[in-house]
Design a binder for these strands. Sequence first.
DNA 1: AGTGAACCGGAGCACATGCTCCGTTAAAAA
DNA 2: TTTTTAACGGAGCATGTGCTCCGGTTCACT
Lengths: 218, 218
Amino acid sequence: MTAPAKPLRRDAVRNREQILQAATTAFAERGANVDVRKIARAAGVGMGTLYRHFATKDHLLGAVIKRDIDAWMDEALQAAQESAPWAGLETFLETALARQIADRALMDGVFRVLASTSLLDECRSRMSEVVNLLLDRAHRAGELRPDVGEADIALTMMSIGKIVELTEDARPGLWRRQLRITLDGLRAAGHTPITEPPLTIADLDAAVCHSLPKLENS
Amino acid sequence: MTAPAKPLRRDAVRNREQILQAATTAFAERGANVDVRKIARAAGVGMGTLYRHFATKDHLLGAVIKRDIDAWMDEALQAAQESAPWAGLETFLETALARQIADRALMDGVFRVLASTSLLDECRSRMSEVVNLLLDRAHRAGELRPDVGEADIALTMMSIGKIVELTEDARPGLWRRQLRITLDGLRAAGHTPITEPPLTIADLDAAVCHSLPKLENS
DNA sequence: AGTGAACCGGAGCACATGCTCCGTTAAAAA
DNA sequence: TTTTTAACGGAGCATGTGCTCCGGTTCACT
């Protein structure tokens, strides 16, 4: 889009990359609540430099998260195509949550991606694509209850993500218990119908957006 | 315990109650993150007064939460005895989460109760009592999968509580979809065994305690 | 090399928020 | 009524944190 803006000076390019690098590490280790100063220091850069490259902490987070999600989706799409319908869904959720452990800011970031239609649309549609592929196959195989959609998968990731956040440090892997239970709940066999109306991803965006700070352009 | 300490002055008694009242309202409406100043102002009291009665914001939260949980447990125990095994469990979870809507600080408070062995032991054991009663009955009726325990119910409340937090303002009741799915996952019929080791409530205390600020005496 | 624009760094601002200090007030005992 | 002292209130401290400002520096073009 904004390709022919202007070539950056060499030091600017280098610094931008160092900031991104440091931010990636910092967000992964400490979550989205790291002090911006820590990131700047780790990048060997001043606050001014950081804020010239990224208008806002959230913009920086967005940039980092975008990379992460891209990598995640590449991996997920490939895994999805290589596995059976139900196993694919299981693996997807498991991978998503395992990633949350390695990168404490990921789920926060994903929430913001979902909450923001203005940024990272591309990521969002890739995620939708992968999730819907998995859902379609599981539905067609008759293994997934018919009354769940994309938004329910997102909600599942969010809710179990909370358990990861709370217990992972002291009881690694505890979240897997909850995941097993939830996966059984997602099975078609013996499910009881959901009476509450379903939700599109766009609706979920709007809903989550309501309670989360918004993220804007790069 | 500390009953015959010393009779409080009349204005002190009145102020203490006013603080508790204001705090209850404030925590319910805004969650545990309200500014202490707001509470003091709403109580018509100075900061000094507030902090003489409650050594810490968390002590105040603890006092408020204790009342809430007591009332909740009274209600839950009665409801449990009046309903069928499975319905009782369903109702319990539904009530717990509905309460979280009316009182935004409740789940935060519950987490801290769980995380703190030093305060509110009484509440904790009452909760355990009620939850175990529900689980026992549902297990005996063969409706609840045998590999879940008290701690899994706590985790369920925590995880779906996250959805309440995120979506309730914009999409009231959306959390019920996730609850339905999870409840189906808790059913004995057609469950797949959980391979991850189970957890006692004490273990969960320790785990959650790890990631949450601790709460101390009265 | 010389010059100007682009870029850098970090002190400092603005704001939020938990908590304390201490001069003042008023309840209750004498 | 006087005196004692528990209780009061709110300005202010300490800390954390997102972000800005501006004097100095460095790159890149001539």
